[in-house]
Design a protein around this nucleic acid. Structure first.
Length: 570
RNA sequence: GCCCCUGUAGCUCAGAGGAUAGAGCGACGGUCUUCUAAACCGCAGGUCAGAGGUUCGAAUCCUCUCAGGGGCACCA
């Protein structure tokens, strides 16, 4: 089923073609017709500016054109009435009967509410987090994780089969440094002098890994290579990263090993493919990607004089691999620190002969934690970064999910730790979850009193409930738009908005308790309505990877458990 | 120097070429004590950084200027 605005646009188009057939409008090719949602309620639920779009071709004033179209509109079960207003808008009011019916549809759909099959049969791959396993997951990285995971959720709602993927960077210089760093700490434990590698990793976790190795293996790795230490360390760290991600409901279907690109020759095949297509050449002992031919400011090295690839080459080979797997859509989530590579990867995709529009990227800006009006800055290399686990301990997983989502990826994030930690209504997380809790409370109370809403007559719903339903039915449009614009934050803002509309409604539209007593039929209809609301809030929360609590339950004083913060060495 | 992102209410931020630019927090004023996650109602608050341009119509698209952030390796 297509989206509501599309259905309404079809109705408008029907009016125009009918008027053309009747000779009231000249024949011409119609532009795509947009349906807007007016800001003010008296302008109706939806509006078409079609008359303003086409009045030039018609050669009549837009108001007159609008009147002609409106008079020729085909009947639709969606529409209650239309109104033509200057300068030529056609305002549409939705059918209330149709709106009431949505309550039953929502309840019937339950956890699959808003599930569509628009993209059924299509496959998508979403790559996110992909942090090098050189240390614990940082707060900055998880922003991309939350954005990517939410995009994946949204894609599934419209019918995509989604592969959630982590590009596991288990090769390369940084990983070698990791191995050498652990080796040096291990030898320290054995009482040997070991040169700590330049630019090595100095966090406490390196010592802990070394100590664990010693605990299990004693001094048997005395003569082991850095490579062996690298493998042990990478495994330990990736497991820890997985645990951290799981705490915020992030799971991947596939950890793609960078090393497989080498073992399967994909990297060198990619170089050859570029050569074959005339996009690679040798110069100064290196192999260059002729990206300037595709608009880049200069060509880029893909194989160093040493014979080692630069980071670009495996990135391109990885994308070649993704596209060869036949995905209809590939989504990359990068942090601002990698922003420069994204366009180059896309050039690579083009150079290799793939359609670059298959690949969408989300590039998010940095995260800054703000606490007590001061920022806690972070840098992975120095080691004074804030770990995700520390933040989760502090503010809770749901708050991390929500706050990381609820900002446009393009803006540098100020993560308000004090607000995220607070347990009152000023915290948007509580605001949204409490809407669900309140619905659940009504259900519980009604069940205790034996009130049954099965077969309720929804004609007893009032104007406020209908207004709320009008908001709910925007959700499919919101999802569609979040995907087409790659703006998953829309889900967070929508949920907050909906909760904001819910609480006043809850206050006025009572089901059970009221001094004057509420007639049974109205109680039933309202209970039915709140049952649908509960479905909606639960669904929105799960889309955002958040929990939907049934009862009020304040977190224990999480407080500031920072005793175990890592000491930093320089 | 070049590239990317940002500049909208006191603060944090939404905003889709359409009608009188929105939310939350904070401020101010008033109800209420709950189907218990203390709420509800009202009010104030704006040169959409600035200047040009495109358009019937611009916070939104284009150009320039100013300010802030990030990035510019044969590092990843």
């Amino acid at each position: 089923m297509s989206l509501l605005p599309q259905q309404l646009a079809a109705v408008i188009r029907g009016g125009i073609t009918a008027a053309q057939a009747a000779g009231e409008l000249p024949a011409f090719a119609l532009p795509p017709l947009r349906i807007d949602r007016p800001k003010r309620p008296e302008m109706g639920d939806y509006a078409s500016a079609a008359a303003l779009q086409i009045n030039k071709q018609v050669g009549k004033p837009p108001l007159e054109v609008a009147k002609i179209i409106a008079a020729r509109l085909p009947t639709s079960e969606l529409i209650d009435s239309v109104e033509v207003v200057p300068p030529g808008f056609i305002n549409i009011r939705l059918s209330e009967a149709w709106l009431r019916m949505q309550v039953e549809h929502l309840i019937a759909a339950g956890d699959r509410a808003f599930q569509s099959s628009d993209a059924a049969g299509r496959t998508a791959q979403v790559e996110y987090v992909s942090a090098n396993p050189t240390g614990p997951l940082s707060v900055h990285r998880i922003r991309g994780g939350v954005l990517g995971d939410t995009v994946a959720n949204l894609l599934e709602v419209i019918g995509y089969t989604v592969t959630r993927e982590y590009y596991f960077n288990d090769a390369g210089q940084q990983m070698n440094k990791l191995g050498e760093s652990v080796r040096a700490r291990y030898l320290e434990i054995l009482g040997q002098d070991a040169a700590f590698p330049e630019g090595g990793y100095k966090g406490l976790y390196i010592r802990m890994i070394a100590a664990t190795i010693y605990a299990f293996k004693g001094d048997s790795l005395r003569d082991a290579s850095g490579d062996q230490f690298r493998q042990i360390a990478a495994t330990a760290i990736i497991e820890r990263i997985k645990l951290s991600m799981r705490r915020v409901n992030i799971r991947h279907n596939l950890f793609f090993n960078e090393s497989s690109l080498y073992s399967e020759n994909a990297v060198w095949d990619t170089v050859q493919a570029l050569r074959d297509r005339g996009y690679a050449y040798d110069q100064d002992g290196a192999v260059w990607f002729k990206s300037s031919a595709l608009g880049d400011e200069k060509d880029r090295v893909i194989v160093k004089r040493t014979g080692d690839p630069t980071y670009r080459l495996p990135d391109m080979a990885y994308h070649k691999n993704k596209l060869d797997r036949g995905f209809d859509l590939v989504v990359d989530v990068f942090g601002a620190d990698h922003a420069a590579t994204a366009p180059q990867v896309l050039l690579g995709v083009r150079a290799l002969g793939y359609d670059p529009s298959t690949v969408r990227t989300i590039i998010h800006q940095m995260v800054e934690l703000v606490e007590g009006g001061e920022s806690r800055r972070m840098s992975t290399r120095r080691g004074d970064f804030v770990e995700l686990d520390e933040l989760i301990d502090d503010v809770g997983a749901d708050a991390v999910r929500f706050f990381m989502l609820a900002q446009s990826p393009n803006t540098a994030m100020n993560f308000d730790v004090d607000l995220a930690r607070s347990q009152g209504d000023e915290n948007p997380v509580y605001r949204i979850q409490s809407a669900h809790v309140r619905c659940a409370g009504i259900m519980r109370k009604a069940a205790e009193k034996g009130l049954d809403d099965e077969g309720a007559d929804l004609n007893h719903l009032g104007a406020e409930e209908l207004k709320f339903l009008r908001k709910i039915i925007e959700i499919p449009e919101m999802i569609e738009r979040a995907i087409s614009d790659m703006s998953p934050q829309a889900a967070a803002f929508f949920a907050l908005d909906l909760a904001g509309a819910f609480h006043p409604l809850y206050d006025r539209v009572r089901v059970l308790s009221d001094q004057e007593g509420i007639p049974l039929e109205i109680q039933k209809a309202r209970l039915r309505f709140y049952r649908a609301c509960k479905v909606v809030f639960k669904r929105l929360l799960s889309l955002m990877g958040m929990s939907a609590p049934e009862v009020m339950e304040r977190r224990e004083d999480s407080g500031k458990n920072k005793a175990e913060a890592e000491t930093v060495e320089e």
